[in-house]
Amino acid sequence: MGGIGKYILQRVLLTIPMLFILLSAVFLMLRLMPGDPVLAMLGGRNVSPQLIEERRKEWGLDKPLHVQYLDYLAQVVRFDFGRSSRTGKPVVVELFTRLPATLELAIWGIFFAALFGLTTGIWAAVRADKTADHAIRIFHIGSFAIPIFWLGLMFQMIFAVQLDWFPVAKRVSGIYAYTFQPITRFYLLDAIIQRDWNLQLDVLKHLILPAVTLGIALTGFLGRMTRAAMLEVLDADYVTTARSKGLKERVVVLKHALRNALIPIVTVMGLQFAILMGGAVLTETVFSWPGVAGFLVRSLDARDWNAIQGTIVFIGVFIATINLIVDILYSVIDPRVRY
């Protein structure tokens, strides 16, 4: 147990300098970028230079760079990213109100990725080197190659505009927009808590297109992992034994083989959050999804320094934490991992 404790401590300690580097990079990046946040706000109006100066002082932008940097670090340590110049609210508040939207999308994205990835992966492994295997392989490679924003738009065009099965965008229909009081801000969960059947259906309908879009981005990766892991275990002795006992192939594959193949698959899935967040930027943009990633895009356009810094650090911390948790869980589950 002491070994695990030490390992965890080591991993945590390694994460800190990484985050520090990220922080510094973001800080430097913003100071180098054209587009003064003060001017961005004052936007093309007739304002006196002295007002601009005043505002700059207020935001601490008149101080030398190293002082700004130290101030900024001190802020971040307290997990305070200042106020967003675009919305006027503290960045942390903005992020936490938006995080559930992104997480909900991500979780359902993973769900669909697992659904498509596992089924195609298992199928490909069972039919290894047959036509089905080749076709699935092409599908997996294809899913890496699809521009995710285009896929989202095509889905909108086909399923929302032409067939009218799903709404085009947003998380919930306008009719609920004012009666619906989100508690957890995970809308589906909120709808279930409120026991409003129509609302549940509405939220679900809004969720499906973006979640499938995001899920497809991960399908290829998961599918191939599944195929490889399944091939590995399908050759193993205990599977051969199960087979020789006369068990049905379906039972052998799903019960004996899949169960053992799942461990590495699940681990890898946890580590795909980075890719997922990248996909979320575009998915949230296309589907007007009010999440963290879309917030970043808007903040970039508005030259909202506090919001940009906050969001990037937040995403960094978030992903580092998830990786850390997965790593630790894996080391606990699989004793072969050396600490």
């Binding site: 990046m29 930027v281 970043l296 990037i312 995403i315 580092a320």
Partner: peptide, 15 residues
């Protein structure tokens, strides 16, 4: 470890 798509977009938005 940072999402490459987000990083690239942020970088290009800077320039």
């Amino acid at each position: 470890s940072f999402p490459s798509m987000i990083l690239a977009i942020a970088l290009v938005a800077v320039m």
